Simulated assay, not measured.
Amino acid sequence: MLRTVAMMQPYLFPYLGYFQLIARSDVFVLGDDLQYVKGSWMNRNRVLVNGQPKLITFPLKKGHLTECINRRWLCDDFEREADILMKMLERCYAKAPQRDQVLPLLRGILHHPERNLALFTEHSIRSLCAYLDIKTPIYSGSSLGLPARMDMQERVIQIVHRMDGELYLNPIGGLELYCPARFRAAGLLLRFLRMDDITYAQFKHPFVPSLSIIDVLMFNSRNEIKELLQRFSVVEGQEKRATLSPA
């Protein structure tokens, strides 16, 4: 099987497909040296509250819009924010079947003393992978010594080469961002992971998709999640064709 490398920005408690990507790869790289994007999933996510999705946010100290993720910090009173979030999760998932196993895990993650956003997130992802028995090696992009300013596709290609990879695997949402021909020219294959349509019981409410991994953990045992981690397809990218501007 081709040695597969995947890379994503470090997200806090991301959706199931993020962990499918890690589990399917031979090497996973956290893009901690990429630019922080306000309003992204880097410091927020969604959980289930009374049958409806609710946005949760991890407040940050003020920072410049162009700063990298690893130069952003959680707010000074994050310990209080973590306590508030834990109480909300305890209340909203009080009757969830996996509550007793998952709440201690979340409590340990939220009360980790690290305040750097990238490092805090890396610890959370590693902790969740350990819980789910995902053994893929995880590296930080900043450890690879790449230039701060690079074309995104070239950055990915360089990372795959440095990890002795043969195939780059990206979430399906990036289908329009990468060109298969450019990867082939660099001696690499490009593929995309598409998560299946997955549902599971969320109390007696209609299913709400695309929530944080927190929701998946609360309603599914570890063995059940291991099965969900296999429910995806890997597809090829689309060749980009040059288009002529109208006369």
Rank of each mutant, 00 (worst) to 15 (best):
R44S: 11
L119K: 06
G108T: 05
D32E: 00
P171T: 03
T121N: 06
M218Y: 02
L167G: 06
M8K: 05
S233E: 15
P206W: 07
Y36R: 06
F183H: 09
F78S: 04
Y131I: 02
R191Y: 08
F58I: 11
D133T: 05
L175A: 07
L244A: 12
L128W: 05
P209N: 12
Q35M: 11
L189C: 15
A118W: 01
L189H: 15
L48Y: 11
I56G: 04
N45C: 07
E114C: 02
Y131T: 03
R155W: 10
A94Q: 11
R80V: 03
K62V: 02
L60A: 10
S233C: 14
S143K: 06
K226L: 13
L106R: 00
V216S: 13
I157Q: 07
R222V: 12
M152R: 13
P113K: 04
K204H: 14
C129V: 01
I125M: 02
A186W: 03
V37L: 12
Q35E: 07
R155T: 05
A242Q: 15
G51W: 08
L190D: 08
L110V: 04
L48T: 11
T4N: 13
T121R: 01
F78Q: 06
L193K: 08
L188Y: 11
H112D: 06
G174E: 04
A148Y: 10
V5E: 08
G108N: 09
